[in-house]
């Protein structure tokens, strides 16, 4: 069973649709009991960082989820805002503390080039920097769908799996032990996105 964590903000339905399309049983839940029983977790996300953290706190999920992921090493994939929430802190709309599972902070996408608009919206590359089960069968030139104004900056270079170049490189995918994150939306990136998601669900 895959549990898609519901904290009142994510694009839950699209993630559920993609996971089910891949033939996995999945459930949308806010209950830690379901998460404990799950084989894998997905932390989706569309929204603002501060509200995401506020909701996770209000649901009483921050501590037990951290225990489940960091101590019990339950595999988890964070998508977009979900991956950003895994960082220690964020500068979106003031300073906010994150879940702190990944050593890094969330910062605004800055581009020098006036031609490059922010938010970064559309199909763009994923420059694969490390071998990962996540990337099995994914061609080097595969395109993924991004839509964001902020991104995670990993302190530990070893955590970076892939980058994207938008007026400068930023972390597009990371992995720290059992914790995965993608800034792009695999559930919205057609074939390659679904394959990447399948790699996480099947192989990891």
């Amino acid at each position: 069973m895959i549990v898609i964590i519901n904290y009142g903000l994510g694009n839950l339905f699209s993630v559920l649709g993609a996971v089910e399309k891949l033939g996995f049983k999945a459930k949308i839940s806010s209950k830690i009991k379901d998460m404990e029983k799950a084989d894998k977790l997905i932390l989706p996300g569309v929204g603002a960082f501060s509200d995401g953290m506020k909701n996770l706190h209000e649901l009483g999920l921050v501590e037990p989820l951290t225990k489940l992921v960091v101590e019990n090493k339950k595999p988890i994939l964070g998508i977009c805002l979900g991956c950003q929430l895994m960082a220690k802190e964020s500068d979106e709309f003031g300073h906010n503390q994150g879940l702190g599972w990944i050593d890094g902070s969330v910062i605004r996408l800055e581009t020098e080039n006036k031609e490059l608009r922010v938010p970064h919206v559309g199909w763009d590359e994923l420059l694969q920097r490390k071998k990962s089960t996540l990337f099995e069968g994914i061609p080097e030139d595969a395109l993924f769908y991004y839509t964001h104004s902020f991104h995670i900056k990993c302190k530990n270079v070893n955590d970076i799996l892939g980058e994207c170049d938008y007026g400068g490189l930023f972390t597009a995918a990371f992995c720290h032990n059992n914790i995965y994150g993608t800034q792009f939306h695999p559930e919205k990136s057609q074939l390659h996105g679904l394959n990447l998601l399948r790699n996480f669900l099947e192989k990891r």
């Binding site: 903000l9 569309v46 929204g47 603002a48 509200d51 805002l81 709309f93 938010p119 839509t147 104004s149």
Partner: peptide
Amino acid sequence: AANLFGAQC
């Protein structure tokens, strides 16, 4: 809406 869901939304 931007404050709640992010500008990209």
